[in-house]
Amino acid sequence: MNQRIGYARVSTDDQHLDLQRDALQQAGCSLVYEETASGKNAQRPELSHCLKALRPDDTLVVWRLDRLGRSLPDLVRIIEELQGRGIHFESLTEKIDTGTAGGKLQFHVFAALAEFERSLIRERTQAGLSAARARGRNGGRPAALSDKQIRTIKSLLRDPTTCVADVARDYGVSRTTIYKHCGVIKPRISKDENFETV
């Protein structure tokens, strides 16, 4: 027998599931999975249980689209996975039902919008990198030390009494950064050396 299974989610403990629960039960859901989790949180165990419980020709029902997906691409991904398993999807507020021809059309529009969004993000990223390269900057994290700082540090370290740890602290970087950028050879400690604890 085909089942209508509901999924309800609120973001905080201060919110209540009553509205969603009532709407899902009135829509004929024999089982409703409920959880409190932020929409930004990828870890939603009740949603995972819900998706595992669904069988071909079952219908996953939500009160509103944003209860299911963390973003439009995430929503499309979940629904595409359901479709691949022969499972229908229904959102009560938006009146979308992928078990109907109209609902399938709406979903294809969402999928196209999600792909458009991904393309825009890629284009903006490439444009930003190109503009940065044109200004003489490469992508990635900014350098921890400027060329001028590196020259100054090298000059300081020519004095054998200068401590690398002190220089690193003064410039707000780690000793590893000093070793990496300033050509300093990291001291090696022999395993055979014995140290006395004062």
Rank of each mutant, 00 (worst) to 15 (best):
R151C: 07
D170V: 10
E117V: 00
L47M: 15
T100S: 13
C29S: 07
I178A: 03
L17V: 05
A111E: 04
V10W: 03
S71K: 08
V198Q: 11
H49Y: 02
G128T: 05
T152C: 04
Q3L: 09
E35V: 07
K191Y: 12
A114I: 06
A112K: 06
C29N: 13
G136K: 07
A165D: 12
D166R: 15
P56N: 11
K104H: 08
N194I: 12
P73R: 07
K104Y: 00
I5E: 01
K154C: 11
D192I: 09
P142K: 13
R141Q: 15
T162L: 06
H88V: 01
L82V: 02
R4F: 00
A53E: 14
Q126P: 01
L68R: 09
P56A: 12
I78V: 11
Q3P: 01
D159H: 10
T152P: 00
E35S: 10
H49T: 11
Y7V: 04
L145Q: 10
F195Q: 02
T12D: 04
A27I: 05
K154I: 09
I185W: 09
K191S: 11
T36Y: 08
L72T: 05
K186D: 00
Y33S: 06
S130T: 14
L65E: 12
L129C: 03
Q149R: 11
I79K: 02
R137C: 07
R64L: 08
L75R: 04
R133T: 03
I121R: 10
R4E: 00
K104R: 13
S48R: 15
G172M: 10
L129E: 02
E81I: 00
R64T: 15
L120N: 08
G99I: 00
G39V: 06
R122H: 01
R44I: 07
H16I: 05
L17S: 02
G28K: 11
R175N: 11
V173A: 02
L51G: 05
R70D: 08
H49D: 13
T12A: 01
I153G: 03
R55G: 01
G69C: 04
I178N: 06
K154E: 12
A143H: 07
R70F: 05
